[in-house]
């Protein structure tokens, strides 16, 4: 299966030096975003591997580790998540990819015993700084879950929930319609907005959940295996939707489905589990992070190649 790169950028030779990355590399994203955000120049800390540096990062992780009690679920992650692109986290079960995803918007705060060390910078602000309000973080960084989880309320109320919560004062009907249109659900549900969200099919429910997430106008969308409970046709619709949404949102998606990662993402991070023989501690590590086309066609690490070709994991 050949991955289909979503951006038709020419695969120029990866620039070796930091900061000197060709402007073509992330141009599509840059032109769409860049609302006053200074271009990232601090790539000097990156190990000089043959990675293409991220130009405009929405997240900048420095040695991020997530612990549950004394157990290190995922350790020493240093990576940059690009703005207005789709970044996929792949890897075997237990490698900490979902854990890392959930720490990006501080959902892990809700898990007892969870703690995060290292620096997690979102748009120049440390997400884990003591004076940061986690609720505000989550409002900006929305999340779509593995299992569609609409509220047991009407379709309309599901979408209106977030705006109401955040004191939206404006045309709520318009916002609901616009959000449902963006996920391609409006034509299917416009005559039954008062019906329960649970009356929809699984795929429709998941799109409703995405509509609910984007109704609060977030900046980033985190998706935790959003298609794993859906049939192939519903999955395809969600993937199309992800393509459309990335012009407006930065998207991070965790997936078990490698074809899906290849189809939807611009960059892919491959995680794996390191097992400490002495303590039996299983810690998730970032093995390789690069352009999706490179990860799937020409990975730098043997472990990555083994995984993406199905020989391991």
């Amino acid at each position: 299966m050949t991955p289909s790169p979503t951006q038709t950028e020419e695969r120029t030779a990866p620039p070796a030096g930091p900061g000197a990355a060709g402007p073509a590399a992330d141009s599509a994203a840059d032109s769409a975003a860049a609302e006053g955000t200074p271009p990232e120049e601090s790539t000097a800390t990156q190990p000089a591997e043959e990675q293409e540096p991220v130009q405009d990062a929405v997240f900048d992780l420095q040695d991020v580790s997530v612990r549950y009690g004394s157990f290190i679920a995922v350790g020493d992650i240093t990576m940059k998540v690009p703005r207005h692109q789709v970044t996929a986290f792949i890897g075997p079960s237990g490698c900490g990819k979902s854990t890392l995803l959930r720490c990006l918007n501080r959902m892990n705060d809700l898990v007892p015993g969870a703690s995060v060390t290292g620096e997690l910078i979102y748009n120049g602000e440390n997400v884990y700084a003591p004076d940061v309000d986690p609720a505000e973080v989550r409002r900006r960084i929305g999340m779509v879950f593995q299992k569609p989880n609409p509220f047991p309320k009407s379709i309309y109320e599901n979408v209106a929930f977030g705006p109401r919560l955040n004191g939206f004062s404006g045309d709520l009907d318009g916002l609901v319609q616009q959000s449902l249109e963006r996920v391609g659900l409006w034509s299917e549900v416009k005559d039954k907005l008062k019906e329960s969200g649970h009356a929809l099919s699984g795929g429709q429910q998941q799109r409703l959940c995405i509509a609910r997430a984007i109704a609060v106008e977030p900046d980033v969308l985190l998706m935790d295996e959003p298609c794993s409970a859906l049939d192939p046709i519903a999955t395809l619709k969600i993937e199309d939707l992800i393509h459309q949404l990335k012009s407006t949102y930065s998207i991070v998606i965790v997936t078990h489905n490698m074809q899906q990662a290849a189809r939807v993402s611009d960059r892919t991070a491959f995680f794996s589990v390191n097992i400490d023989d002495h303590q039996g501690m299983r810690t998730g590590r970032l093995v390789e992070y690069d352009r999706t086309t490179k990860i799937f066609n020409n990975p730098a690490q043997q472990r990555t190649e083994d995984y993406v070709t199905g020989r391991f994991g």
Binding site: A135, F151, L165, A213, V216
Partner: peptide, 23 residues
């Protein structure tokens, strides 16, 4: 009470009190 609905509300920026009251 299903955790996934509480999580959905938290992910929309709800505080603990709001999750209690609205979910």
């Amino acid at each position: 009470n299903p955790m996934d609905q509480q999580n959905a509300a938290y992910a929309l920026g709800a505080t603990r009190f709001e999750v209690m009251r609205k979910v």
